[in-house]
Simulated assay, not measured.
Amino acid sequence: MVKQIFKFHIMLIVSVFFLLSSCGTPDEKKMAFFEKGNSLFEAGDYVRAKLEFKNAVQIDSKFAQAYYMLGKTALKLKDGRKAFGWISNAVKLDPGLIEARLDLGKMFFAGRALPRAAEQADEILKIDPENVEAKLLKASVYLFEKKFESAGKMLENMAAAGIKKVRFYLIRASYFKAVDNNQMAGKVLKEGMEAHPQSLEMAMALARYYGLEGDLKGIETQLKKALEIAPEAIGLKLNLARLYLETQRLSEAKIILNRPNEVYYEIYKIAKDKAKQHKKAAISHYLEAKNIVTMNMIADRKFIIKNGFQFKGDQAKLTLSNSLKNIFLVCSKIINNKKNEKFIK
C-alpha cells in the first residue's frame, strides 16, 4: 500500500512538471517557435521554418522580426509576392528594423521602383548614417537615374573610407563603365579580385570586362579562376569550352567537356526550369536543341531514363531561351568534329 502511494506521488509530480513546462507565457512560446524557425532556416529547411515563424506571428501578430523571417523564407522558396508582403509588414510594424528595410529597398530596386528604393535607403541612413549597404543601394539608384555626379561622389567617399565589399567594387566598376571610363572600370575590378580572390562574382565580372575589351587571354584566365572556385559549374565549363572552340583549340574544349552525356542531362534539367520562367519564349528553340541531341546520338536514352528524365510528347511544349539553345550548339560543334570521334564514346 505504501509503495502504491509512493508511485502515485511520483507520477503526480512528473505530471505537474510536464504540465508546468508546457504552460509558458505567450512571449516564451513565440520565442520558442521563432528560435526553432531560425535553426531550421539556417539548416536550409525553409518549408518547416516557415511553419515555425507562422506559429510565432499567430501568437503575436505584431512580431516584426518573425514577419521579416517569413519574408526571407519566402525569398528562399522563390515566392516573391509573399516575401514582399511579409517584409513590408515587418517594416510597418518596426520602422527601425534595418535589415528588413534594406531587403525591401532591394526589392523595390529590382522592380525598378527607384524612388521607393531610395526612400528605404534614406530611412536607413537616418538611423545608421554609415550603413554601407544602404549607401550602395542609394548609389545604384543614382546610377539607374543617370545621376552620375551624385553616384560618383558617394562611391568616391566610400573608397576613401576603405570600403572593400564585393558589391562596392561591382557598383563602382559599373559607374566608371557608365561614364565611359573603361580603364578605371577594369582597375576597380582587378582591385576587387585581389581583395576577394575566392569571389565567383568578381571573377565573372572581370571575365565580362575582358570580353568587352576583346581580351581573349583575360577571359580565359578569369573563366579558369571561376572554375577553381566552382569546379562543378556546368555553365562555366561550357563558356570555357566555347572560348576554346572559337579560338580553334578543340582538344582543350574536349578536356573541359569530358562527360558529354552528363553535360546534356544537366542542361536539360536547366531547360525544364527555364521553361517555367519563360513561358512565351519560342518553342522552336527547344525543338532545335532536342534535334541536335538526337542527330549527334549523344543523349543516350538509357542514360536519360536512368537519371529520371525522359523525352515525352508533351516535352515539345517546353520553351528555351536563346542562351540555352546556343549551349547545345556549342556542344554539338565539339562532338560533331570528325577528328574527335572518340570524344563521343
Score class of each variant (00 low, 15 high):
Met1Lys: 08
Lys7Val: 14
His9Phe: 14
His9Glu: 09
Val14Lys: 00
Leu19Tyr: 13
Leu20Met: 12
Ser21Trp: 09
Ser21Gln: 12
Gly24Tyr: 01
Gly24Met: 10
Thr25Phe: 04
Pro26Leu: 06
Lys30Gly: 02
Ala32Lys: 09
Phe33His: 13
Phe34Leu: 05
Glu35Ser: 14
Ala43Phe: 10
Ala43Val: 03
Asp45Arg: 13
Tyr46Thr: 06
Arg48Phe: 04
Ala49Gly: 02
Leu51Asp: 14
Asn55Met: 08
Asn55Ser: 15
Val57His: 04
Val57Phe: 04
Ile59Tyr: 02
Asp60Trp: 02
Ala64Leu: 03
Tyr67Gly: 02
Met69Phe: 14
Met69Gln: 14
Leu70Pro: 00
Ala74Val: 01
Leu77Trp: 01
Lys78Tyr: 11
Lys82His: 09
Lys82Phe: 07
Lys82Glu: 11
Phe84Asp: 03
Ile87Thr: 10
Ile87Gly: 05
Ser88Trp: 00
Val91His: 04
Lys92Trp: 01
Lys92Gly: 02
Gly96Gln: 09
Gly96Ile: 00
Glu99Gly: 00
Leu102Ser: 10
Lys106Phe: 09
Ala110Arg: 12
Leu114Asp: 01
Arg116Trp: 03
Gln120Cys: 09
Gln120Met: 15
Ala121Gln: 03
Ala121Lys: 03
Ile124Gly: 05
Ile124Arg: 03
Leu125Gly: 08
Asp128Gln: 11
Glu130Ile: 06
Glu133Thr: 10
Ala134Asp: 08
Ala134Arg: 04
Ala134Cys: 07
Lys135Cys: 06
Ser140Ile: 05
Ser140Lys: 11
Val141Ala: 04
Tyr142Leu: 01
Leu143Ile: 05
Lys146Val: 07
Glu149Gln: 10
Ser150Gly: 00
Ser150Val: 01
Gly152Ile: 04
Gly152Thr: 04
Glu156Phe: 09
Met158Asn: 10
Ala161His: 06
Ile163Tyr: 08
Lys165Ser: 15
Tyr169Cys: 05
Tyr169Asp: 02
Leu170Thr: 10
Ala173Gly: 05
Tyr175Glu: 03
Gln183Phe: 08
Gly186Val: 02
Lys187Cys: 00
Glu191Trp: 02
His196Tyr: 06
Gln198Leu: 11
Glu201His: 05
Ala203Arg: 08
Ala203Gly: 10
Leu212Lys: 13
Lys217Phe: 10
Gly218Ala: 06
Ile219Asn: 03
Lys224Thr: 02
Ala226Pro: 02
Glu228Gly: 13
Glu228His: 12
Ala230Trp: 01
Lys237Cys: 08
Lys237Trp: 02
Leu238Val: 14
Leu245Gly: 05
Gln248Leu: 11
Arg249Lys: 15
Arg249Met: 14
Ser251Phe: 09
Ala253Gln: 07
Ile256Thr: 07
Asn258Glu: 15
Asn258Lys: 15
Glu262Lys: 07
Glu262Tyr: 10
Glu262Gln: 14
Tyr264Ala: 15
Glu266Trp: 01
Lys274Asp: 15
Lys276Ile: 12
Lys276Met: 11
Gln277Asn: 13
Lys279Thr: 12
Lys280Ile: 06
Tyr286Arg: 09
Glu288Ala: 13
Glu288Gly: 01
Ile292Arg: 15
Val293Ala: 15
Thr294Ile: 15
Met295Ser: 13
Ile298Thr: 12
Lys306Ile: 00
Gln310Pro: 10
Gln310Trp: 03
Lys312Ala: 12
Gly313Tyr: 09
Asp314Cys: 02
Ala316Gln: 12
Ser321Lys: 09
Leu329Gln: 14
Leu329Ile: 15
Leu329Ala: 13
Ser332Arg: 09
Ser332Tyr: 05
Lys338Cys: 00
Ile344Lys: 14
Lys345Tyr: 13
